[in-house]
């Protein structure tokens, strides 16, 4: 079973790789739009990447309500649930 911490670490790598966000800014409570300067097109790119990671299709609807890094971690973590 993948832990939330592992998901967080992976997400952090993706955020650095895709958007060159300074790693120290990526904290669980960071807001995606305001703090990390992501837009909704970026979110689509991120979802594609996360789908590769989980191996499951993530519907955009699931991501509509995410606001923070922790929200993403929880959504992705839930994908690994048996």
């Amino acid at each position: 079973m993948v832990s939330q911490q592992q998901v967080f670490e992976t997400l952090r790598t993706y955020l650095v790789e895709l958007f060159e966000i300074p790693p120290e800014k990526i904290r669980p409570e960071a807001l995606l739009l305001e703090d990390l300067d992501l837009d909704s097109i970026d979110a689509v790119d991120l979802v594609v990447k996360l789908q590769d990671y989980t191996g499951r299709k993530i519907s955009p609807a699931e991501f509509k309500s995410v606001r923070t890094v922790q929200d993403v971690v929880e959504r992705v973590h839930a994908q690994f649930a048996p």
Partner: peptide, 9 residues
């Protein structure tokens, strides 16, 4: 570049 998002930035 590494990603489309970086290209846009």
């Amino acid at each position: 570049l590494t990603s489309r998002a970086l290209g846009a930035r």
